[in-house]
């Protein structure tokens, strides 16, 4: 396929209506094509206008209460979870293979500088054949590589946790690719760098502030 073929597919992609093979091909193309990325943003705005054709409706007051009860129980979630945004986007835009290669290289480099720790995580009965390795440097910047996790169902993502003194601190969410390999960059909280248990659970997409799902991977320092 050539650029113009992909460009033709973008409006349908903005409606998430492409069939799987087309969607897969377009996503590959979008990674490297800034013009198509801009085009997609434009079509997404048009698609979003369709929402206004639904009649506005009033949710019950309890929804608001539930939201604000939940966020009050979280301490500055954005700060805990934030990873510099442009950096994450750059990571996201790099093909998985390149990312994996870069990961290996950085692990080796960091090892050579002798400033890292590395933790092996092993699969729980939820995913007995799953394995993972979490490596982080002395600033807490971490790289998680997982293998053998089942694909997350729709609306779910895996989430990394740093458990310090029995209290889980939320890490980021990620999704393994078709081969079951997942990679995620994260930031290990100060408190978790010297004595912690690390775990991966299956959670609602976007992540949660306290674990709700089953543990798939677990390891400790």
């Amino acid at each position: 396929m050539i650029h113009s073929d992909y460009k033709e597919m973008i409006p349908a992609h903005a409606l998430s209506a492409l069939d799987r093979a087309d969607e897969h091909a377009l996503k590959e193309h979008l990674r490297d094509c800034e013009e198509c990325q801009r085009e997609l943003a434009d079509w997404e705005a048009t698609a979003a206008s369709l929402a206004l054709s639904a009649d506005p409706l009033e949710p019950s007051e309890q929804v608001r209460e539930r939201i604000f009860t939940r966020i009050k129980s979280e301490k500055s979630p954005s700060k805990v979870l934030a990873f510099p945004s442009p950096q994450r986007k750059r990571w996201l835009s790099i093909a998985a293979v390149v990312l994996f290669a870069a990961l290996i290289v950085s692990i080796i480099v960091i090892y050579q500088q002798n400033r890292t720790r590395s933790v092996e995580l092993s699969g729980t009965p939820e995913a007995t054949s799953a394995t993972a390795k979490l490596t982080y440097d002395n600033t807490g910047r971490a790289l998680l590589v997982t293998n053998g996790l089942p694909r997350a169902p729709a609306g779910k993502e895996y989430q990394l946790w740093f458990i310090v003194g029995g209290k889980p601190l939320p890490g980021k969410t990620f999704n393994p690719d078709n081969t079951g390999r997942g990679t995620s960059t994260d930031q290990v909280p100060d408190a978790a760098r010297n004595a912690a248990v690390f775990a991966v659970t299956l959670e609602p997409a976007g992540g949660v502030s306290a674990p709700t799902g089953a543990i798939y991977l677990r390891g400790e320092l």
Binding site: P59, V63, I71, P77, S78, A82, P204, G206
Partner: peptide
């Protein structure tokens, strides 16, 4: 709707 606004809270960045 609730999940969505929790996501906005956590992921506004």
């Amino acid at each position: 709707l609730q999940e969505l606004f929790l996501q906005v809270w956590r992921r506004a960045a």
